[in-house]
């Protein structure tokens, strides 16, 4: 819901409305990001398809059910879902004009994201120590690439979120920073949805 709301707001706050003619730059940029997300969907879709084709090709190496430790994965899932919720709270604070609340919730979101990445990296390192590397089998190539690409997206999001917090500190809530917060929150929710598919298709179907 936060998005619909935010979208409407960014429309009503077009900057320098008298000279823009019929084009509102900030809503234009938000739309571009939606379209970028479509392309990112295809990117993840291709990786999922690759993983599904290869997931049985273990080539004598470990299988999914031997490798995955569900407690850690469930913890990761809840941390990421919570961070999606807190990024929603950040947008709500922004819509109330509360800069402190906005930055505060972004900090919480970033910390949760960082914990997610830490857990994921720990899981990967453990697997590699157990001898399950990206070069072990087609299954593990697909696994590390799919889950790793999601992790890379989250890590980039963290850098971006940090940069945005500094900009919010400098400029406050303006039409430009408002659009940027809306976009990163969109991105964050998107990564959450992708993770739900990772959790279901890779981990749950893997151990079942």
């Amino acid at each position: 819901m936060a998005h619909g709301n935010a979208h409407a707001q960014s429309n009503s706050h077009s900057h320098a409305p008298s000279h823009e003619g019929h084009v509102d730059l900030e809503s234009l940029r938000l739309m571009g990001f939606w379209i970028f997300l479509i392309t990112d969907c295809i990117l993840f879709g291709s990786l999922f398809a690759t993983y599904i084709v290869l997931h049985g090709n273990t080539a004598g190496g470990p299988t999914a059910s031997e490798l995955f430790h569900m407690p850690g994965v469930i913890a990761e899932t809840f941390i990421l879902l919570t961070s999606s919720f807190t990024s929603g709270l950040a947008v709500l604070s922004m819509n109330q004009g509360n800069r402190k609340g906005l930055i505060g919730w972004l900090v919480v979101t970033a910390l949760l994201g960082a914990s997610f990445i830490t857990l994921e990296v720990t899981e990967f390192v453990k697997m590699v120590h157990e001898g399950a590397t990206i070069g072990t089998s087609g299954f593990l190539s697909g696994f590390f690439t799919l889950v790793g690409t999601h992790g890379l997206h989250v890590s980039l999001g963290l850098v971006w979120m940090t940069a945005l917090m500094i900009q919010l500190g400098r400029h406050g809530i303006t039409p430009v920073t408002r659009r940027k917060v809306n976009i990163i929150s969109l991105y964050w929710h998107f990564l959450d949805v992708v993770w739900i598919f990772v959790f279901t298709i890779v981990y749950m179907l893997g151990v079942m």
């Binding site: 690759t50 290869l54 090709n57 273990t58 080539a59 190496g61 990206i134 070069g135 072990t136 089998s137 087609g138 299954f139 190539s141 697909g142 590390f144 690439t145």
Partner: peptide, 10 residues
């Protein structure tokens, strides 16, 4: 890795 190789399940 072994996405498209002839060995190890590619």
């Amino acid at each position: 890795a072994h996405f498209f190789t002839l060995t190890a399940g590619g």
